[in-house]
Amino acid sequence: MQVTRSPASESRRAQILDATIAVVAEEGFARATFARIAARGGLSSTRLISYHFAGKGELVAALVEHVVTGIGAHVGERVTAASTARGRLAAYIEGVVSYADAHRAPMTALLRVAMAGAGGASMQDAGDLSHLERILREGQEAGEMRDFDASILATTVQRAVEVVPFRLQAESDLDCRAYAAELVELFDRATRAEA
């Protein structure tokens, strides 16, 4: 059932989500208490959080959904514009890396939630690699890519791109375009059909 919220309610929820993302990204999941989130968001009381979210679980699920939706829109647009499976794989890699670069706090927060084993079903949905496996299988069926286990390769690609937020924390001036280009070359060579 779709819940209809007023613009003021949506605005407050967005304010709470932004504060949650900031606290989780900067201080870690365990330290993301309603008190810290309220302070970060400039809220007068933690009751404002409780009014909009039934508990920390619902708040974290909303955080995961918010970030995953953003990634999906950013990456999906690039992937659907590519005309070949090899192009879609490159677009996926470049899209995730560029999103991580442009949205550092949300990506860091998402990965901290995952590392904490939180997020429940929403985190399991975020880890779904079927879209990436589909790109790889389409490449194999089209003869663009060699025979390999698409599940293993999809997992390997995903792990290579999801480490970017951690690299950015350690190396804030990381050249993400060069990083993505290197990954594109690596995985293109690993998957390409022999001429």
Rank of each mutant, 00 (worst) to 15 (best):
L153A: 11
G139T: 02
M145V: 09
L110W: 00
L136E: 06
T84M: 02
L132K: 07
V67C: 02
G76S: 10
A181R: 10
T69I: 03
S122K: 11
L136N: 00
R104S: 01
I21P: 00
E144H: 08
S98W: 03
A180H: 01
P165M: 08
V163Y: 03
G76D: 07
T108C: 01
M123S: 10
I49H: 00
R86Q: 13
E182C: 12
V68N: 05
H103W: 06
H66A: 12
V184R: 08
I93S: 02
H66W: 12
E133R: 12
D149Q: 10
S50D: 13
T155K: 10
V184I: 05
D149N: 15
M123L: 15
M115L: 14
F34D: 05
L48P: 04
E138L: 11
A73E: 14
G87Y: 02
H131F: 14
A181M: 10
E171M: 11
L174P: 07
A19Q: 00
V67H: 04
R167D: 00
V157F: 01
M145Q: 05
G41H: 07
A35C: 04
E77W: 10
S11I: 06
R177V: 09
G143E: 13
G76K: 07
I49L: 06
I71K: 06
E144R: 11
M123Q: 09
A178S: 11
Q140T: 09
E10A: 13
T20I: 07
L132N: 03
F148L: 13
E133Q: 14
D101L: 04
F29A: 04
F53K: 01
L17M: 09
R192W: 04
G70C: 04
Y51F: 15
E141K: 15
E162G: 04
S151T: 13
L110F: 02
K56T: 09
A116F: 03
A8R: 15
A61D: 00
T80P: 01
A195N: 11
A8M: 12
V68P: 05
E77M: 14
F187N: 01
A85M: 08
D18W: 03
Q140Y: 05
E138D: 15
T155P: 01
F187R: 04
L183G: 06
K56L: 09
T4W: 14
F29Q: 00
T108V: 10
M123W: 09
E185M: 10
G57E: 13
T84S: 10
V97F: 03
D147S: 15
T46R: 12
R159E: 05
V96G: 05
E94H: 01
L111F: 05
L153V: 14
A142V: 10
D173F: 04
A181L: 12
A126G: 12
A14E: 13
A109M: 09
T46D: 09
F34L: 08
A154I: 07
S172R: 07
R189I: 05
R78S: 09
A90H: 02
D188S: 14
V113A: 08
A195V: 13
V184F: 08
A195T: 13
R112N: 01
A14M: 10
L132V: 10
